[in-house]
Amino acid sequence: MKKRTCSAPVPETRFFSKTNEFFEVYLARQVLASIHTIRSYRAGLSVFFDYVTTVKGFTPKNFLFSDCTFNLVLGFLQTMKETLHYAPGTVNSRLAALRSYLEYVADDNIEVMSVYIAVLKVPTVNVPKEIRPIVKPESLRLLLDAPENTKIGNRDRFVMTLLYDSGIRVGELQSITLGDITARSGNWMILINGKGRKQRTIVLSDKASRHMDAYMKAWHSGNNDPSRPLLYTVIHNNISPMSTRNIERILKKYGDMMRSEHIDIPETVYPHMLRRTRATNLYQQGVPIEQVSALLGHSMIETTRSYYASPSLEQMRAAIQKGIGPEPDDCKQEWIGSVDEIKKKLGLK
């Protein structure tokens, strides 16, 4: 008799054998992905885990990379759409997490490459492009002029001015410390710690720099501790960075206050809207898309082009005019005469 061999899967072929390494080593230490990216990818693979174990009936131990077929992943997308009722963007985000994980494993295991390629062929869900609101110039002026000329009012004006002028994310604003800012030739420079721990330096405009001067004098006079948050709140004598909720509350307060005077102010004004407004204004004023992308801290220009760069009517009109060539002198003559004559002129007879 032949000796029976163990048919248990080799550990390396088990689909979920590399997930901890993917999160804790690759994303966290090698790619330096943000906690938001790691959280999103973890959620994506967790939903996929639930699908293969609950819907498809696999055990975590017996689900192999070879079981992750095109049709299985297609069914995964269908379940997210029809059973879990996920929005199209969420479905695509979960698929992106799965693809990223397979790409990571395939880089070290050639046998997984065919699985990765098959999953790449799974079509993403069409996401309707939403026209995201921006603050119009007159509304922006009213918004920035709304705070009273008090210590708190000037701080609120500085917060809104800084968000707009720099185009930074609210999380980036919260992380700025006194050690990140320097004044040179009358303008302030800020070291921004962006997504994925990528750093960039921005220079404030003359107007924003004057607001920074006043803010520093009122809120940081005589304090040079480099670890002190630029924007802070004091609770029980403890200084901590201003929370996202407080920053959002500032914008909402003045948006609600001025909306009665200017109906063009969006229903809700929030930090990212000022970032989008700044990017759109720069692009429409003729600033190259590459420079706008650098200001925003995007690693891919296509992100800037897709979500922030909306052309103005003047830009669209100019683009159309560029595509219209000069009309030939004898153009109109081709259409004069009988049908037979016109056909002859056009080489049709």
Rank of each mutant, 00 (worst) to 15 (best):
N224Q: 08
Y254W: 08
V339Y: 00
E302S: 15
K252G: 10
F23M: 10
Q285K: 15
C68L: 07
I35E: 12
L295T: 13
K121P: 04
S227G: 05
D340I: 02
R210Q: 15
T124M: 01
I301S: 05
N237I: 03
P88H: 04
T37V: 07
M216P: 06
P128V: 06
S40G: 05
L120H: 08
N187Y: 10
I247V: 14
L230M: 11
Q291I: 14
S175C: 00
G186K: 14
I320R: 01
A97P: 04
I168P: 09
I235V: 10
R157E: 07
S293P: 14
G89Q: 13
S40Y: 02
I152C: 01
S310T: 15
I35H: 11
I110M: 01
I320M: 02
A318S: 06
P326V: 03
K349E: 05
P128L: 00
D340S: 02
P241M: 01
L191H: 12
T59W: 04
F49Q: 02
E12Y: 02
T268P: 03
N246R: 10
I202M: 02
L173C: 03
T53P: 00
R276D: 05
Q284G: 12
V25E: 07
R276H: 13
Q199H: 11
E290H: 08
T304W: 06
A218H: 01
L144T: 08
T280F: 04
R305H: 01
V10A: 03
T280N: 12
N224K: 09
